[in-house]
């Protein structure tokens, strides 16, 4: 029974990763406590925890992530990258934090400003109004004072962090991506 249950936990983590989702620990608990109760076995949360630990230790692909209030989420590295899993975790938190993190990461790593469409498209799928609302809120908050925006010559909005890019650089990169790349196929 324990073995079957571990296998079922493993499968459900892998399955949800395959469909592009994190599996929250509490979902595992509710799902499997029900199952176990049905089978008339007295199993406490500890048993599920033990099974989860077992699943993690014996399957290299299964990884755990913590959100800001230390809730655990699971994914399988076979079908999901850590970068994407972290992004999904951010998505669960507030939009300001999500957007700022994405903007900063892009400015630092690639480096580049990113167009507003990134947040409108999969996997964020935010409405334009909501995005603009967030950006306006950020202006007022100290912790987001590095987040800036530029508008390209065809009127599209790009965001960047001034910690990593100065205005001219960000402006030219945005213009290059929005207009230059299209005109120079």
């Amino acid at each position: 029974m324990i073995k079957e249950c571990s296998k079922a936990i493993l499968d459900s983590i892998r399955e949800s990763s395959k469909s592009g989702l994190l599996l929250p620990e509490k979902e595992i608990f509710s799902k499997f406590t029900q199952k176990l109760v049905k089978s008339h076995e007295q199993i406490r949360d500890d048993a599920i925890k033990a099974m989860l630990d077992e699943v993690i230790s014996s399957n290299e692909d299964i990884t755990v992530l913590y959100d800001s209030i230390y809730c655990r989420y699971y994914y399988s590295a076979l079908t999901m990258t850590e970068a994407y899993a972290r992004l999904l975790l951010l998505k669960k938190e507030n939009s300001l934090h999500l957007m700022a993190s994405i903007i900063r990461e892009n400015s630092a790593k690639y480096p580049r400003p990113i167009p507003i469409t990134v947040f409108q498209n999969f996997p964020f799928e935010l409405r334009q109004d909501d995005i603009l609302l967030c950006i306006n809120k950020m202006i007022e908050l100290q912790e987001y004072e590095d987040i800036e925006q530029v508008t390209t010559s065809i009127g599209n909005l790009f965001f960047y962090s001034k910690r990593y890019l100065d205005f001219d650089y960000a402006m030219m990169l945005a213009e290059w991506e929005d207009v230059g790349c299209i005109e120079n196929p």
Partner: peptide, 22 residues
């Protein structure tokens, strides 16, 4: 061009634009 479950990186300027919902 957009974050995908299998991808570590993405680039809005990429011509790899397939995605769920497209």
């Amino acid at each position: 061009s957009s974050p995908q479950p299998w991808a570590e990186y993405y680039s809005p300027g990429s011509r790899w634009i397939s995605s769920k919902g497209r």
